[in-house]
Design a protein around this nucleic acid. Structure first.
Lengths: 261, 261
DNA sequence: TTTATATTGTGTCATAGTAACACAATGGAA
DNA sequence: TTCCATTGTGTTACTATGACACAATATAAA
């Protein structure tokens, strides 16, 4: 792929008019979780000119809801509309953002960003995490500068700026939520088996769970429908397929799974 | 109290140089919880010119950590340095902020804020909640425009802008946290009785708890020291005083109280 | 066709945690 | 001295959890 030498129009617009279009000094970054081949993965973007991976992120338009901005970013990257998205933390260290990232990006085109440009200031970012069904995603490789890819959560290398920290916090939040919120509907395909669901839990929690106790607990939550179908293919007894009971799942989402206290 | 007619210097500075000092378009609001006379209360500020109460809030300096900004705001209001503070949510609707609040404030001095002034734009706010020991607070009544007061959480009237929403979310977060995080150290005085601790829990959870089961559970957490002293004063058996075991409390803070999953 | 293998479906038992409940002890008021 | 409100403590039934065993079955190998 040949590297263009002329500054693309959208890059020029961002640089020159960005501060008229977007909220300045604030951004959104998304940690997108997907589950595939028994591994928890996150969506990362390759930033070529610094040879590092980064979280998909972007800015907030002046009249745009912050949540909407996050949705928009993910829609552009994954093509999915109905994404489970949740804000989990704000990253507000004055030194977290690194203006040189923008400098390097524009330097590729021989453009030097003026020091007083809006992109050069300190940025506070709002972290969102998303849970999406891996099978429904078609990654958009729209930009010639950047690639988009699923990376195993255990194989995430050095990331841009403080993005490793953002990923850690997202994962921690996900782990906490799993204890009192139903998980799985957004990460698994419509039909799935109990072992698949268990693997998801084991992956997120990073520990082995007892097969029998897990099943009992899950069934006990009353949010699953067992189908009469089974998933054949393995050289062993075929496991039943399950779907989530949407109504009860929604109820559990609101009320939580443990009524303790 | 006579109303000054001349624009105070700090108001003038905020208006004219605020965008050089602070991050624009982003603010911090704090929901400060305290416990007094068996009631959960929050700290509110009376905004005279709109005759409503509001959360203590403020802006973030250009080189200031967002957390630090929240600490600073609370220090100014309560005089307390070591405050338990936690960011809990971002409020990012494009219509949540109301420029007329600022307009009205300055109108008191006959000053009309220009439409393109930084204060007139849409603001995203970061919500923090704080837990503080009521007995250590001395409220600062520094401003001639605003009063600061503790309001019973059940008697909070209409608040400025979306602040009611922010309070609800903070309370919800507190209720969720209580289930897996030790609470009380920051809200109660050093020495307290079991009935007092129970009242705190009952107030936050808004439900009655069984006295005997509550005590067993609390003792079971292993984060309390029972003193040999008792609190006399009531026409009944004097309850023992307790303190938190700092070391174990800190450990529980990190690891949570239930290891489930 | 038969046998082997991996993995699933289901059940039991001991233990820990929780909810519901009762009675003796005591500081101060009557 | 008696009474009352409230505290300290213990018991019992029930539910949830962790540890564990055996029968059933879809494919692969013999």
């Amino acid at each position: 792929m040949a590297k263009p030498t002329k500054l693309p129009a959208d890059f020029k617009l961002l640089l020159e008019k960005g501060d008229k279009i977007y909220q300045t000094g604030i951004s959104v970054d998304c940690v997108v979780f997907g589950f595939h081949e028994n591994a928890l993965k996150i969506l990362l973007i390759k930033v070529n000119y610094i040879n590092k991976w980064a979280l998909p992120g972007g800015f907030i338009q002046k009249d745009e809801n912050v949540d909407a901005a996050a949705y928009q970013i993910l829609k552009e990257r994954t093509g999915i509309n109905n994404i489970f998205l949740q804000e989990f933390s704000v990253f507000g260290s004055p030194h977290r953002s690194d203006a040189s990232v923008h400098q390097n990006r524009y330097q590729e085109y021989g453009v030097k960003i003026p020091k007083d440009n809006w992109l050069m200031q300190r940025f506070i970012t709002v972290g969102y995490f998303a849970l999406i069904d891996f099978t429904e995603v078609e990654l958009m490789q729209e930009s010639y500068l950047e690639g988009c890819n699923w990376i195993d959560i255990n194989k995430v290398g050095p990331l841009m700026m403080d993005h490793e920290n953002i990923v850690s916090k997202a994962l921690e939040t996900l782990r906490n939520q799993i204890a009192y919120t139903p998980i799985g509907k957004n990460l698994l395909p419509k039909k799935f088996t109990m072992p698949e669901l268990q693997k998801l839990y084991e992956t997120i929690l990073n520990k082995k769970l007892d097969r029998r106790n897990f099943q009992r607990k899950m069934i006990g939550f009353g949010i699953l429908n067992r189908l009469s179908e089974t998933r054949k293919g393995g050289a062993h007894k075929a496991p039943f397929l399950y779907t989530f009971n949407d109504k009860k799942y929604q109820k559990a989402l609101k009320e939580g799974l443990y009524g303790s206290w």
